[in-house]
Write a protein that binds this DNA or RNA. Structure first.
Lengths: 242, 242
DNA sequence: CGAGTTGTTGAAATGACTCAATGTTAGTGG
DNA sequence: CCACTAACATTGAGTCATTTCAACAACTCG
């Protein structure tokens, strides 16, 4: 990929916020490019964390495999997003695997190189801290959702998140630009592919969305939002009380 | 509290790891002491994050209140642990409230002071990053547990975590040194106090633990561990297959 | 075309929740 | 020291959301 484009991608990434163009150029100079094919593992859960990466082309999914064989889909990585930030710290192992959805191209730095860059550009360390903090809060919110919401709300929430991340406007709504099976969504929301199938079917009939195999177009974003925060029995009671 | 004791507490906290005694002394010099009474709020969810704190006496619980009125108990803070690290970053609001369980005493630094200390002692920033990373992994693991485990396993896991954090050896086992009601445990594990009551009762009959009001003594740690990782239907099938 | 992947649907099973009633314990104030 | 009260804990019955499993339908790709 041409240098101009890569510089732009780095500049837009939160890790490199507030860094001078020269500094970003220098960071690019010491990076390596790696190419992966679809369904390759970019990172293997349990390996020592040695590489920090920025995705420049293609998409990948973060998977966590539990001791009892269950698989959890934590989130998707799309171009411009970074992963493996903990490589900057020594003695950390990756807590999950990252699997390429398409063919992928990533920029990669060794953990040591990143740690040294923290010294050279102190802003980089602060940015890293900020990213971690944000991701922490995000996890906290999702944890709480999981604890209090039911399956339907969680699926709605997941779709909204994916629209936010990968949404593309098409004629009849917003397309989630990922090859998303019912099983994927089930792993992402912590339910079964059967439940997901039933829920999507119902929403399709209600005109909230339009789905064919591995393809979901949201027609009524507001409708999904309503499901997320109105549909709860507890809050419904509260709402009635008013 | 006398200075010697405070220095020791800071020294043992992960934020101050690898800092010289002199540096820790200087940090202590610029800290303020705050006292709270039981059930006071040390931090209010939604407030701008302005203070970084280390608990030196007493215990507190991290509570997240959801839009629909549910309460989630994220974790407990015990003496020696820090909270409010994100105050070092500007424009962050606390994602949850912290409520004193007992009377508490905390050391407090302003977010600005902490950010300046990051410049003065670069190790401090790295430590902060490390702590965030660890907490992230911990959240990730709990998220996955919530997604795949059933209530019984989650309660067992919660008890084990609490033993780890606050366990005190007593005659017939390990006491969880917290005033823990069924409702607290329910908020902590994402279930109802009824389910918790039933589960604890059964375990009491099985001799796994000994509980009276607000007091839990674990008699058979190994037994709980078994429940956590053997009791799953999926893994049971796998185990049979061998 | 055919084979494997993906999606749908129904019926039965079930884990967990809700709610109401009741029992138990720790403080409080007279 | 006792009675009283509020907080905490137990228990049972009914209900519900979700899972499980099996069968089948539809699509896609070589």
């Amino acid at each position: 990929m041409e240098r101009e484009r890569l510089l732009e991608i780095l500049k837009d990434n939160d890790v490199f916020t507030s860094l001078s163009s020269r500094a970003i150029g220098e960071m690019l100079d010491i990076s390596a490019t790696r190419i992966y094919a679809a369904s390759d593992l970019l990172i293997r859960q349990g390996d020592l964390a040695t590489g920090f990466n920025v995705m420049v082309r293609g998409r990948a999914k973060l998977l966590q495999i539990t001791p009892d064989g269950h698989q959890v889909l934590a989130r998707y990585i799309v171009p411009g997003q970074e992963f493996g930030l903990i490589a900057a710290l020594s003695d950390f192992t990756y807590p999950l695997s990252i699997e390429a959805v398409d063919d992928c191209e990533v920029l990669r730095w060794s953990g040591d190189a990143l740690a040294q860059s923290f010294v050279r550009y102190p802003q980089l360390g602060l940015n890293a801290l900020r990213i971690m903090a944000i991701r922490n809060q995000e996890m906290q919110r999702r944890y709480q959702e999981l604890l209090t919401d039911r399956v339907e709300q969680r699926v709605a929430q997941a779709l909204l998140r994916l629209v936010d991340q990968t949404g593309v406007t098409v004629e009849n709504g917003v397309l989630i630009n990922l090859p998303l099976t019912r099983a994927d969504l089930a792993e992402y929301t912590g339910t079964t592919l059967f439940s997901v199938s039933r829920i999507l079917r119902r929403w399709q009939l209600d005109g909230l969305l339009d789905t064919s195999r591995k393809r979901i177009v949201i027609c009524d974003l507001a409708g999904l939002h309503e499901i997320v925060d109105v549909m709860d029995p507890a809050s419904a009671v509260l709402a009635c009380g008013r």
